[in-house]
Design a protein around this nucleic acid. Structure first.
Lengths: 226, 226
DNA sequence: ATAGGTAGCGTAGACTTGACGCTTACTTGA
DNA sequence: TCAAGTAAGCGTCAAGTCTACGCTACCTAT
């Protein structure tokens, strides 16, 4: 049996939450196949890449200017026929960031970079819609069993900000009072002296999260809300 | 930048529990590289494989005679230098089976097939030790949050059998009385009329698990034991 | 008959969960 | 100046779950 003549690509699904909307970072393709369609940032594994992680970080930087983010392996897609150019195996990665920290820049290889709401995507190239849906699933899970939410928030945030992340990702409303109570009980939040002043309502206390303190907890808290 | 000249392999980590020992299915390599070392069943993606799942099932069958098992994607390994033959990206899969159901057969491509205790492995080819360790981690997790344990058991089993699976996988003792109580409360066990007679002690009631009934439960039970 | 060991039942206290009533503190507009 | 509006934040209660652990039941071998 002939060994398949195959190429490997790495794609990144970069997610963020804006207000209470989950968004994904996409680029507009400049070349065929799928010219003018939107797609996940990514590309072929190159000889110089020491690892898949290196490769996906490189591609993300080249195509969107986003760098220095934690990329976690999501899933590998290798069905025949998913790329018209031939057999392509794609290793997809997931990153969670907050938009404010990054300045998007379109590369010469693309004709656009933008955030798109996951619930209102344009027409996508390849099987990227499926990959994004898989990433969304994974995030729903991660946010309940890991401190993933804090990657989507600035260093200082209010309980309301945090709750909006959960509501945006899970797509459901959560009881405000139980959310507050349960989260404060987990012991992962550091209460700060400061409060917000932005809104026209009562100012809210700011909190911070420390990865270090989290690791020191005797038991991993669970962030599940009914 | 040159696109990497890369080949893709698929490997399967097939796990089972014998008594209270977690074991993995390995083959002894007949050819270089790593001739005479033990390795995970697997091989190169071939042109005729419609999907990665097809490929890994085919390789597993060819090399060990094990077929018709559910293979779940585990992780993809692609670091430079992990295969002396060149750049190789390996998609690893995980399967859980009970030994009795399968008759191992050495293929002409290998010089042996055998079950090895995960805690007492021989010297392994490539980075397969790392892959197995990753699989063990995943199983520890899966067994607490999914009905994975039942894949490791025959259709009819006692509560003791079930507990031994948990103790073997998690590597710790569990309180017999709480285990029984909690598991019976999950509602996933079907009590049978029959009892065992094998041991020289009091016969134990047999139970069965039905995937269908499990799916019908309003909430997914959790199988975590302190 | 008894010893040894698994099978199996039950309880009490501590903790967690989910629903929800209510007060507090701020801004805005009449 | 003060009432209205809204988010921020506190507290309670009843139901359920978890854990540690005492105890009984049943079987075989000697």
């Amino acid at each position: 049996m002939p060994t398949a003549d195959v190429r490997v690509t790495v794609d990144s699904v970069v997610l963020t939450v804006q207000e209470d909307t989950l968004e994904v970072l996409l680029i507009k393709r400049k070349y065929e196949p799928f010219k003018t369609k939107w797609a996940l940032p990514g590309g072929f594994l190159e000889t110089s890449d020491k690892s898949l992680e290196d490769a996906v970080a490189r591609e993300l930087y080249e195509e969107t200017n986003v760098s220095n983010v934690y990329l976690e392996q999501l899933y590998t897609f290798g069905d025949k026929g998913r790329d018209p150019r031939g057999r392509v195996v794609t290793v997809a990665y997931l990153a969670l960031i907050r938009q404010e920290g990054f300045e998007l820049r379109t590369s010469s290889e693309a004709s656009g970079v933008a955030w798109w709401p996951v619930n209102a995507l344009p027409e996508l190239a390849f099987d990227h819609e499926r990959i994004i849906s898989y990433a969304h699933q994974r995030l729903k899970y991660k946010i309940e069993y890991s401190p993933a939410a804090f990657k989507l928030l600035p260093d200082k945030f209010t309980l309301r900000d945090l709750q909006m992340i959960y509501e945006g990702v899970l797509g459901k409303a959560i009881d405000n009072r139980n959310f507050r109570k349960k989260f404060l009980n987990t012991g992962v939040l550091q209460e700060l002296e400061e409060t917000t002043q932005e809104s026209s309502f009562r100012p809210a206390r700011l909190y911070s999260f420390s990865e270090e303190d989290f690791e020191k907890l005797p038991d991993r808290p669970v962030f599940v809300f009914s």
